[in-house]
Design a protein around this nucleic acid. Structure first.
Lengths: 232, 232
DNA sequence: CTGATGCTTCGACGGCCATCGAACTATGCA
DNA sequence: TGCATAGTTCGATGGCCGTCGAAGCATCAG
């Protein structure tokens, strides 16, 4: 429960502590994690983690779900995720271009989860393909589904109208951490990731944001979605 | 110049210090301010302010412009402003509804500048009016100009296509600090404020984010733009 | 040159808070 | 019932950093 109404600098200070920032970015993957998992993620003791998590809860940045002797934490709302995302984007945009960006792990660079949608090289190529096929249009960080795009996704079994009625924006362009180009976020980005996961084309690597594509899954993705070729 | 590439928690920690947060939010008004003005704003000595400003500059959050013996600071980019805005929005949305929100000054509550667009009661009523007239549509924080809206604004002398080509999004719904309802942001929001200011309907109060509408200016605004009535 | 103003650097002080050991409670398993 | 594990509370320690006084540059006015 929130005891004090957190002000802007208080929220920023909470995120400004490296251990807490580690936990929060770990939760960007969208999965709920336990206190010990988060302690490992941040490389701190469980006591310290407990104190941090209490503060984040108290400020309303996290939700908690008790299950037996475990406590599962997740981000409180999409607004919190959006804040973390804009922080991440800013830190990326402030980083000089000559240093290598993002994670080193090739699997992470290739395909990973960003909060709840597809990121990495594959996410960027998919977004670019949707754009060149005229299925979405872009104006800065604001993307919209075209008429053609609506027909395309409904042909894949997506209830676009239902997504549109949800609280989150339908399409958003999210700046990719490692690629520095946009990938698809928003409720449609969420639906898309769910779709390719439900079809078994991809599986989540345990304890990581990385996504593992089977060879056949990768072929299927290329066939059913317009991926831009690597070259460009 | 940026010596180190600031990471996410570093950026957050910079904003998390109350004095620095004061300076940054003061700069949200869009005007460039001198070091002493910012020191006054944050209620700290000039030495301390100098140290804070050096850190913000070094992290790439601010730009500086030397003019004689003065230094004018402003936010480095629209991305920084967007980050501050999402922080502000989150702190508003986390604040319980039973406490009075936003500034006490009635002039500030009525009309003020939010970075570079119109906020306050008038901004909220204008946004609602645009919505009910079908000039814009809204899906969560994503607003778009309708065909009718394009014709409306072009009739007012706005080059919508040019705005669309700018780096910023054309329309954005920005959660109003005092009113807790949306007002119009994005490049169109910027154009609109410039328009009403160039027409002399409103003037900026010196050293404040408040906007002063003359009686005739207010009438003109009501006549030329669809303001929602106070009641709703 | 002289004085005034804007801003910076240096150094010392002080407070806040992240950290972890130790001890404790709560849940699950056999 | 007893042991193991998850999580919390308390207290002591230590480090980081915001703060301002004093002194030092730079710029401008005369």
């Amino acid at each position: 429960m929130h005891t004090l109404t957190p002000s802007l600098p208080q929220i920023a200070a909470l995120i400004g502590e490296p251990a807490r920032a580690s936990m929060l970015t770990a939760l960007m993957a969208g999965k709920a994690l336990t206190a010990t998992e988060l302690a490992l993620e941040a490389d701190i003791s469980s006591q310290t983690a407990s104190s941090h998590l209490a503060k984040l809860l108290n400020a309303g940045l996290l939700q908690v779900l008790k299950q037996g002797r475990h406590k599962y934490f997740r981000l409180h709302s999409a607004e919190v995720a959006a804040l973390l995302e804009s922080l991440l984007n800013l830190s990326v945009s402030l980083t000089p271009l000559n240093v290598s960006t993002g994670p080193q792990d090739p699997a992470l660079r290739f395909a990973r989860v960003c909060y709840d949608h597809l990121a990495g090289e594959l996410g960027v190529r998919l977004y670019a393909g949707l754009l060149t096929e005229g299925l979405i249009t872009e104006q800065d960080t604001q993307a919209s589904l075209t008429e053609k795009g609506v027909r395309f996704f409904e042909g894949k079994g997506c209830d676009v109208e239902r997504l549109r009625r949800s609280k989150r924006p339908l399409c958003r362009a999210c700046l990719d951490w490692s690629e520095r180009r946009h990938h698809l976020a928003g409720s449609l980005g969420y639906w898309l990731l769910q779709d390719v996961m439900s079809k078994g084309w991809v599986t989540r690597q345990p304890d990581s944001r990385a996504l593992l594509f089977s060879p056949s899954g990768k072929r299927a993705l290329c066939k059913h979605y317009p991926l831009q070729t690597r070259a460009c």
